[in-house]
């Protein structure tokens, strides 16, 4: 277990306007194949990435929101969302997708993946990581 590193992917950009959100998601899914301890942070405009009710037919782009629901299957169960970033944008937890994972060690009980944390707590979580990648 000692070679398992803590990886955090920090998402700070809105989806669709730029390619960052989708690229981050791809890298996250690929990294999951290496059995590391992966978590995601949603900070600043990154919180827009996991808003619910997205409908992309009108802009001719693939809607990648459903992919966030698959993260649990890839053992990615820690999605940290910054409270202050939500507040600045007039958003609450209710505006976000209900992303869950099934806990294999708890008879596949569904548990929420999203953890809303303060800016201070986010800094602490970042501090505990071995590797951080920012998108």
């Amino acid at each position: 277990m000692s070679d398992v590193k803590k990886f955090m992917y920090v998402n700070r950009k809105a989806p669709y306007g730029t390619i960052y959100a989708l690229e981050s998601l791809e890298v996250v899914l690929i990294s999951a194949a290496f059995d590391q301890d992966v978590s995601l942070a949603f900070v600043d405009d990154g919180v827009y990435q996991i808003m619910k009710g997205t409908k992309t037919d009108g802009i001719g782009m693939k809607n990648f929101s459903p992919v966030y629901n698959a993260l649990g299957d890839y053992d990615i169960t820690k999605l940290y969302v910054e409270q202050e970033s939500l507040d600045e944008r007039g958003l609450t937890l209710d505006d976000l997708m209900d992303i869950k994972y099934e806990d294999e060690d708890d008879d596949w009980a569904e548990k929420p993946s999203i953890k809303v944390v303060s800016r201070k707590e986010m800094a602490d979580v970042m501090d505990q990581q071995d590797v951080l990648m920012s998108f």
Partner: peptide, 18 residues
């Protein structure tokens, strides 16, 4: 259809088992 991605083998194996 549900998740818009083709699952990795590890994910497929786990899901089939379940």
């Amino acid at each position: 259809e549900e998740f818009q991605i083709a699952p990795a083998v590890r994910v497929l194996t786990k899901a089939v088992g379940k």
